[in-house]
């Protein structure tokens, strides 16, 4: 029951503050392993807040917890996660000669995880 969606990695306020405490600290780990999803998409996939989801890109796969966002804030088909080791695991190392790996708008497959 997996669907194709677009994942955006980015900064957030809590990612920034928890980063200062240290990237190996629990707060940062939690912030950077929380996936924001459109609430209608979540309903369709049978997900509620804090359920685990598997997100897979052409490069890698991660399991994170989801959190709902209203459609006006996060359109259907878009996912947001704060930067961190998990979001990086989905990035392709090929930079197409630019030096920059694609970290935003990555095409992913998403499905509920056990």
């Amino acid at each position: 029951m997996s669907e194709t969606m677009i994942l955006i990695g980015g900064r957030s306020s809590s990612q920034g503050t928890s980063l200062c405490a240290g990237k190996l600290g629990t707060e940062y780990v939690e912030v950077s392993s929380t996936l924001e999803m459109n609430v209608e998409d979540m309903a369709r996939l049978g997900l509620k807040d804090n359920d685990r989801v598997r997100v897979r890109s052409a490069t890698g796969e991660i399991v994170v917890r989801c959190k709902g966002r209203a459609a006006k804030d996060l359109p259907s088909g878009l996912l947001f996660i704060a930067y961190g080791p998990l979001s990086s695991a989905l990035m392709d190392g090929d930079t197409a000669g630019s030096g920059m790996p694609l970290s935003k708008n990555i095409e992913v497959q998403i499905e509920p995880a056990a």
Partner: peptide, 12 residues
């Protein structure tokens, strides 16, 4: 810097 956290897997 912390590429061990922020880089693609192949690089890490």
């Amino acid at each position: 810097a912390d590429p061990g956290s922020n880089f693609p897997q192949a690089a890490i």
